[in-house]
Each structure stands twice: as structure tokens, then as C-alpha cells.
Amino acid sequence: MGEGNKPWEGKVGNAQQIGGIETAVLDNGSGKGVRIAWIDTGAGLRYKLVLDRAMDVASASFGAHALSWISQVGITPPSPFTSEGLDWLRTFGGGLVTTCGLSHVGGPEEDEQGKRGLHGSISNLPAEICSVKQPDLGNGDLDMHISGIIRESSVFGPHLVLKRTISGTLGKPYLKIRDEVTNDSNLAAPHMLLYHVNFGWPLIDEGSQIIWSGKWESRDGDLENRIFNEKNDFKSCPPPLKAHAGFGEDVAFIQPEPESDGLCRAGIYNPDLGFALRMSFSKNQLPWLINWQHWGENEYVTALEPGTHPPIGQQQARKDGSLIMLKPGEKRQYELQFDIITGQKDIASFVNHNQ
């Protein structure tokens, strides 16, 4: 639906016939009582937000094809007090986007600053929904968005506030996440943020291409890492691997290469499906990209994770001087966009530019 083009004019009286935002509450299973929102772009892209889990993006599909990986855990209620050790894994539903942070990204750790569990607590906190804007066909306004506030707070601080808006345009297959993180306390507060973007079958399959460019090294620093080594084609999805059973995984830390507009682009292209899912983010806002590969049987997933830091933890970031300390009232803005590419020329440009 290009600007000025109204193929629905005179034929549709309710925008929900094409798409829009629908909120609901799950009433069965592990997610019973959890608030969600379905967003239908009216262009083949449809996705589900979990409002009680930081408005993270759970299932997503384009046409008949799933895009995101859904873990065996699935959707669960928020668990703000399961923030020690590996508790995070007990509520990690996968999904297209799981937010990590806001003050710690990485494994469990403890120091004089306190205890921190895997990847922080923000994804286990519910949002206060502030506004829902639906497309208005009558006025030709096709924009839609849903906005909310998530608070990572404690008495005596820190108080980090995430204002999140997820938006799109009716008739266009994309979604945009716009985040603003504010230190709402009277003391400086540590800040780390990572978007855990998880792709699943059939978008990833044998022969699907993992698209990114930039300098990289394996997390373990081993030049002979079984996946991330110069002799291996680690940008092509393999079949399930027995070596990745259980906790088996391999990870690369990437310094992504921005294009001329300052944006980095990464994603997945499955030639058999005929489309690519492209993710765009600012190098200035999110200077790191992580590629997690976990090809376990029935746990077949790869993730591309833009972040302010690699998942090294607050302790290491403090030691190496990279930890962000937000002053009282200080804000940081982040944008992350996903779009579906179907034209062969556009796909070729995306893939070739990120070889």
C-alpha cells in the first residue's frame, strides 16, 4: 500500500479486516493470565507481544512460515524474583526478541556490588501500557503503535525505566522497536542492554544463510573453535548437531560493520522460502553483535544479538572501563527494526553487502 494508493477504498469499513493491534489475556497452559498483543501488519507479517514480559516479541510469522524460535518453556508469567544464577533459563521462552539487561548482560556473578543472575531481570518485568494507536483508514493514517513503561527498580535504587514503543504501518511487512532507558534515581546507575533475537525453523534450516559482516572472534578465543573457525562455513545453517545437546553451543562476538548511513544490517535468508528477514540497528547505539549457534536436536536455533556490550557481565565491563554509568536523569535511546525482503534484487544487495 504505497502512499496515495488505497485499494481498500469503498470496500473496507473496519481496519481490523486488514490488520491492526489486538490485546488479549492467555487463559490456558503455562502462560495462563499473561497479557499479550497480536499485531497484524496486513502484509503477511504477524507477531505476538508478551506485555507482561517487557513487551518482548514472542512468535512471529510471514505468511505460512514461522520466523522465531520458541523454546520448550514457552510463555510464562513474569518472575521478577528469579534473578539469581541460571534462573533466567526457566522463563526463557525464546521468541523473536527477548530483552536482556538493563543493568547486566552475561552469566551469573557476584561481587561487592551484589549478585546478578544470567542476563538481568528486565524480561521478567511487566509493562504498564500507556497507549495503543490503531490505523485509521478513513483519514488515510496507516500508522499503528503500542507503547508501555517497564521499571527495573528497588527501594534506595537503582531505578531504571524503559519506555518502549513498537510500531508499524498497515500494509508494510516491518516492525520497529524504539526504546528509551532513563536513570530515574538520584545516584549513577550501571547500564547494559542486549536484544536476544532468536530465529527458528523454517526460516533457519539446512542451507539458510546467516547474514552479518564485521570483525569477529569466538567467545572462548579458540582459533580452532568447532564452529567459529576460518575453515568452517559458520554462516550456513547445518543440520542438528549431537555436539550441541544440552548446554552445547558456540558463540561469536562481532564488531558489526555499518553501512554508509551508519546502520548495521544482519538477518537470515532462506533461499527455499524466497525471502529474507533483515534487522537494522545503529552502530553508535549498539556497537556489538553476538551470534549464538545452538543446533541441538529439537532445540534448533541461532540468534543475532545487537547490544551495548557482548555478554561479558557487569563485573568485567566495570573492570575494562566499558560499563555505561547513567547519571541521574540521563537517557539512552535505541532503535531496532525488522523487515521482510522479497524482491530478488533487494535480497541480493542485502546478502552481498554482508558477505
Rank of each mutant, 00 (worst) to 15 (best):
D339F: 05
P126A: 07
N14Q: 00
V351H: 09
N352F: 05
Q134S: 01
H309L: 08
W216L: 07
Q316P: 00
V105K: 08
E257P: 00
G321F: 05
V301Y: 07
D339Y: 00
E9L: 12
I211E: 03
P173F: 09
H65P: 02
G168C: 13
R265L: 04
P240N: 13
D233S: 11
I312C: 10
L203G: 11
K176C: 10
W88N: 05
G107W: 07
S121E: 12
A24R: 05
R332A: 06
P328V: 01
L223R: 11
S147E: 15
S322C: 09
K176E: 15
G31T: 06
I347H: 07
L194Y: 03
A303L: 08
Q285V: 02
L175H: 11
N270V: 06
T98L: 14
S153H: 07
A189D: 04
P77D: 14
D346L: 10
S282F: 00
G329P: 08
D40P: 00
Q285I: 02
G148F: 14
E257G: 00
L125Y: 05
F234L: 00
P306Y: 14
I129V: 15
G148T: 12
R226Y: 13
G107Y: 04
Q315L: 06
A348V: 01
T182W: 07
G93C: 04
F62P: 01
G13K: 11
S167H: 07
K48S: 05
